[in-house]
Design a protein around this nucleic acid. Structure first.
Lengths: 226, 226
DNA sequence: CCGACACTTCGGCGTGGGCCGAACTGTTCC
DNA sequence: GGAACAGTTCGGCCCACGCCGAAGTGTCGG
């Protein structure tokens, strides 16, 4: 198969509404069962089964059998980045301000594959930038020495070693880059561990707990109205 | 339209072989006429016209009328990055080494939207890294002070100002990151201006000129066998 | 003005693929 | 063992969409 045809085959996998919905549901990095994904795709389990088989066959999803359940998840970080790329382009409804179902919660805080996005995500990036802990641009980003120290203290030290880069990820609701890559993943993971944020059923939106409200204010100076 | 549906609609645009071929032809950043794109997509002009209208309508392509010609090009850098993301995932034929039509030339040196890729692209990235001019990782990259000075002398200074980041772009043939973003674009542009490389008809592969062979050896220590 | 050319629109054909109901496989739990 | 449940496979329906030939619009050149 030629290269463009592989592109087409891959894109076609993402190009069906039911599959796109299922993939969007998996963008929070969790593994879901076939039934849950059928619900996410607004289709019956039989139909979902066919779609999931195609996605797995195409290397987009990885599947893990566990008893009578089958857990599907994005096959690799490359898949997450590919979807991010499409989302960054497809972006939010152009111009005309809409409030769609559950939109406000999603805009406030959500996960983006393995890191945080939405107003919380960009606020974190802004706070770390303002304090000189990270430098972030459209093209790339980097953790400074004080930043590495801060993250270490915070318990979100990315695997140490060479220079630590932050991959920027274009936020589709805020239209600005936020922290992704290893740094973003470590930060999000630590926030979950601290109980500052919590996943919710059937949505990528995350809830900010009372502890989180305090924590984000004290450690990052972030005040989220709402 | 909900967010996943916009993802699906966008991906569906890329998910047709004829359209994927046309987009691949546009990945070198040039603007092509409808007829040229019909050839690239292996379809008749009527069919191409329909596809191009859809792509333009979806914001993927920008069109410019010029006399009786219509020049189509990728609408924005976001489109290029989206396609890069899909290509990075769809990647080369898995494992089994194939030599496809024009494959060797493409593997040696090609353009990737607005920067250089292939063996030449990663060799440039390696050379600049080895000399401490840039630091590049999977997640991000940065131009050092000596690097900024070097690029300035070379005539490929990216718009100055704040810290200069390099966006890494996963090379689908070498499976390693090479220089993209503003830095990669400036570098590629300068190499074209110097006459070190030249575009070729009907392919994204670029030819390395005699001057280029010398130049890359002298300035970057790059010796390309072949 | 008229032919050549680039490109688009229209109309009709064919097929690929999404959809679901029904039936089948495999696991869990009592 | 049998009921309940997750998930898949099968078969048939149907529509969306890609395809091209033919015809229409607009631009260039003599």
């Amino acid at each position: 198969m030629t290269e463009p045809n592989r592109i087409a085959a891959t894109a076609a996998l993402l190009g069906d509404p039911a599959r796109a919905n299922m993939l969007a549901a998996l963008m929070d990095g969790r593994a879901l069962t076939a039934k849950e994904l059928a619900f996410a795709g607004h289709i019956t389990p039989q139909t979902a089964s066919g779609h999931l088989a195609k996605l797995a066959d195409g290397g987009v999803l990885a599947v893990e059998k566990q008893g009578r359940h089958r857990y599907y998840r994005l096959a690799s970080a490359l898949v997450g980045q590919m979807l991010e790329g499409v989302m960054a382009f497809a972006g939010p409804e152009p111009a005309r301000a809409t409030t769609w179902r559950g939109g406000e919660a999603l805009r406030t805080a959500r996960t983006c594959y393995d890191h945080l996005a939405g107003r919380l995500g960009v606020a974190l990036a802004d706070a770390l930038t303002a304090r000189g802990h990270v430098a972030l641009g459209m093209d790339g980003g980097e953790v400074t020495d004080t930043g590495a120290q801060f993250l270490d203290e915070f318990g979100a030290a990315p695997a140490s070693g060479r220079r630590v880069f932050c991959r920027p990820c274009l936020d589709w609701s805020e239209r600005r880059p936020h922290l992704a890559g290893r740094v973003g993943a470590a930060l999000a993971c630590r926030c979950f561990d601290l109980g500052w944020i919590a996943r919710q059923r059937d949505t990528r939106a995350v809830a900010i707990t009372a502890a989180g409200r305090d924590g984000f204010r004290e450690r990052f100076g972030i005040e989220l109205d709402g």
